[in-house]
Simulated assay, not measured.
Amino acid sequence: MPLFRNAQFEISIAKPQDLPPPRGAEIAFAGRSNAGKSSAINTLVGHTRLAFVSKTPGRTQLINIFRMTNGAALVDLPGYGYAQVPEAIRKQWVRLLEQYLTQRKNLIGLVLIMDSRRPLTKLDCQMLDWFAPSGRPIHVLLTKSDKLTRSEGAQTLAQTKKALPAWGDNITVQLFSSLKKIGADEAEQVVGSWLDDENRVIFPD
């Protein structure tokens, strides 16, 4: 059975202090608003409505935890970078993201969603700045790759690969398309290797 299939919604969190105690390995999904994060999660789990998808950026305002059958969890973080929200809410999102990414003990890796048509924005780089020093793996999904020609996709992938070592050598990247179901197997293989690493501490129930 594929790794992500049968993941189930568990809880939504608005404030860091409301996070449940560490229970199992967590894999975070982060990305700029409207980069296709929720669609990517839905594609990986094989469920069209597990993570909420909206054409309006900035709708994911909570940390949403989805539990997999092996006890690990996928954690959908609030989309970042959407300007048309009140400043107080934007600051709350930033605090929520930063505290989770830097302090969550059972977070073993980050899947970073970037729109393949404009990867490595300033806020994407800020996310890398926050998380890369932890030494934990990062896997970049260049989403909406179906909107690029094959040569454009290859060029974008090569350019992003060239830039990422600035944040360390524990970062991988691939093209991804939720619409065309491109790259799901590759993403599952990479993330699965994080869970298979015997040196990683998996918190018991």
Rank of each mutant, 00 (worst) to 15 (best):
V53Y: 05
T56P: 06
R59Q: 11
Q61V: 03
Q61Y: 06
I65G: 03
I65A: 05
F66C: 04
F66P: 01
R67K: 15
M68D: 07
N70H: 12
N70V: 08
N70Y: 11
A72P: 06
A72T: 10
L74E: 00
V75C: 06
P78S: 09
P78K: 03
P78M: 06
G79W: 02
Y80T: 02
Y80M: 05
G81Q: 03
V85Q: 01
P86T: 02
I89C: 08
R90K: 15
K91L: 11
K91T: 07
K91D: 08
W93S: 00
L97A: 01
L97S: 02
E98M: 12
Y100S: 03
T102F: 14
Q103E: 15
Q103F: 15
K105R: 07
I108G: 03
I108C: 10
L110Q: 00
V111A: 06
I113R: 03
S116I: 05
S116R: 04
R117H: 05
P119N: 04
L120R: 08
L120C: 12
D124C: 14
C125Q: 15
Q126D: 14
M127G: 04
L128E: 09
D129C: 08
D129L: 08
D129I: 09
W130M: 04
A132H: 11
A132K: 09
P133I: 11
S134C: 10
S134N: 08
